[in-house]
């Protein structure tokens, strides 16, 4: 049985206007990602990793090409439709955690569920909070938590809607070694348990190595450097 294509891209590119004219920051890229697969996008700063991530997640529009997410043509959608798609199928983890500062840990976790209009957001959030080992910190605000704790809250938030795809942008970039390990562990465990497709942007080779596939970005162009055999 052929694996279901969760992400499919066909010659997507991104061009921006500058004072010096048009600048192509992403050269035409085509690749597919199957359901449940974990992929690391690696590359130096400025190589276009984050741009690719923003296009795949529908945070930005492609200049040309096609993107299909779980069979839906995202490149034809407007901002509103893309937001809806993100709400239904996508989860995020960011380097700078991006928690809402004026909501408590548990409320941050509940946020996507509430936006998606799911029932019993609170009990789901509580379960996830237990899972990431922070149930005693439920009513704490982000600035009362350590970096590692904040990222664990962000992971719990990412999984509450049981997304089909999880985008993680340098998830351990702001963490020390021991916290990084905890967060990585959690990320991959949940990924496996829930059969989520994981797209991870990092320049940490150790973290990248834990993914089934590694894609290398270099000056806006993509090349595949490993295949799933190397993954953990």
């Amino acid at each position: 049985m052929t694996p279901i294509k969760m992400i499919s891209t066909n010659s997507i590119s991104k061009t921006v206007s500058t004072t010096q004219g048009q600048l192509e920051i992403l050269k035409p890229i085509s690749f597919d990602v199957s359901e449940g697969e974990s992929i690391a996008i690696v590359g130096a700063s400025g190589s276009g990793k984050s741009t690719l991530l923003s296009l795949l997640a529908g945070l930005d529009e492609v200049s040309s090409g096609e993107i299909f997410i779980d069979g839906q043509a995202m490149h034809t959608m407007n901002e509103e439709q893309r937001a809806q798609l993100r709400g239904a199928k996508v989860g995020f983890i960011f380097q700078s955690f991006m928690l809402v500062q004026s909501l408590t840990a548990i409320e941050n976790i509940m946020l996507p569920a509430e936006i998606a209009g799911l029932n019993d957001a609170r009990s789901k959030a509580l379960k996830l909070l237990q899972l990431v080992g922070l149930d005693h910190r439920a009513k704490h605000y982000p600035n009362q938590l350590s970096g590692g704790e904040q990222q664990r809250v962000a992971i719990a938030r990412a999984f509450i809607t049981q997304p089909k795809i999880l985008f993680a942008d340098e998830p351990t970039g702001n963490l020390d070694a021991s916290n990084s390990d905890k967060v990585e562990q959690l990320l991959f465990d949940l990924n496996r348990e829930l059969n989520t497709t994981l797209i991870l942007v990092t320049h940490d080779p150790k973290l990248a190595a834990k993914c089934q596939r590694q894609l290398q970005m270099h000056a806006g162009a993509l090349s595949e450097i490993t295949s799933s055999e190397n993954a953990e």
């Binding site: 997640a57 937001a83 995020f92 991006m98 809402v100 946020l111 996507p112 936006i115 938030r157």
Partner: peptide, 11 residues
């Protein structure tokens, strides 16, 4: 930031 986060999360 909160608005960007909410929009990202599908609002």
């Amino acid at each position: 930031d909160p608005v960007a986060i909410m929009k990202t999360l599908g609002a």
